[in-house]
Amino acid sequence: MNDYQQYFSMIAENQFFIVINKQAGINFHSEDGEFGVVVAAEKYLNIKLYSVHRLDKMTSGLLLLAKSSEVANALSLLFKSHDIQKFYVAISDKKPKKKQGLIKGGMEKSRRAMWKLTNQKDNLAITQFFSYPLSEGKRLFVVKPKTGKTHQIRVALKSISSAICGDHLYAEKYNEYDRGYLHAYQINFNLYGQDYCFSCLPETGDLFLSQVFLTQIETLGDVSQLAWPKL
């Protein structure tokens, strides 16, 4: 086991980029003398890497890192034009107001480090989701964010009364869980004429490792092929 597996595991690498599975509870940027996941990946590969998107500390899953500023610029343009599709999985112990659909609103800073969803169009966040029953009152959410705002998915699910299990900011009984149950599960894009699709399961979390979750995910297959409505 190398020193960096506490930060991430490798999913894919080519001449343009790497894809890693970031572990839950790891900072994106280096803080308080602790490596962030990007620095850990740079040290592991002994190369300079360029970030084009980020994940919250509590969130695990797929992170795309460019190997050059040129590739980073190309990927950033794809993100800006919404030509990179990202899909997340989350688990909540609260029944949602609606089982699937669109969550749309303005993101506004709230108290502490929290955000809230408003009826305004400033800093607009657009999130699509499907939900599925798991066992013991838990629900699986498959989420496709159209925009990439800070805490977007966490705030969106909270707004439909389904805060994510273990979310220390938005869930009431967060300390009942061993982690925050949000994971970047799949990413699809086309770079330089080549189509890419990567997916990875969470590596930690009792609920994510449960057979009922794994069976449901396997049943869904390629989540980009779900009946996502046209926006």
Rank of each mutant, 00 (worst) to 15 (best):
Y4A: 08
Y4N: 14
Q5M: 06
Q6I: 01
Q6Y: 06
F8D: 00
F8T: 02
A12E: 09
A12W: 07
F16G: 04
K22V: 08
G25L: 04
N27Q: 06
N27P: 06
F28L: 01
F28W: 02
F28D: 00
H29V: 04
S30F: 03
E31I: 12
G33I: 02
E34M: 07
V37I: 05
Y44E: 08
N46E: 13
Y50T: 00
S51K: 07
S51W: 01
K57I: 06
T59I: 02
T59S: 02
K67A: 03
K67S: 00
S68H: 08
E70I: 11
E70Q: 14
A72H: 05
A74S: 08
L78G: 04
L78Y: 05
K80Y: 07
S81A: 10
H82V: 12
D83T: 07
I84S: 02
I84P: 09
Q85T: 15
Q85E: 14
K86H: 03
F87P: 07
F87Q: 10
F87V: 11
V89C: 10
I91Y: 03
D93I: 10
K94G: 11
P96D: 10
K97W: 04
K98E: 11
Q100P: 09
G101W: 09
R111Y: 14
M114L: 14
L124R: 02
A125T: 12
I126P: 00
Q128W: 05
F129K: 07
P133I: 10
L134P: 08
K144E: 13
K146T: 15
K149A: 12
T150K: 01
V155I: 13
V155K: 03
S159A: 14
I160N: 08
S162I: 10
I164E: 14
G166A: 09
G166N: 08
A171L: 06
K173E: 13
Y174A: 15
N175W: 08
D178L: 11
Y181I: 13
Y181D: 03
N188E: 14
Y192W: 14
G193M: 14
Q194L: 08
Y196Q: 02
C197K: 11
S199Q: 12
S199V: 03
T204M: 12
T204H: 12
G205T: 11
G205R: 08
D206T: 11
D206F: 09
D206N: 11
L207K: 03
Q211C: 09
Q211S: 14
Q211T: 12
L214P: 07
Q216S: 10
E218L: 06
D222A: 00
Q225E: 15
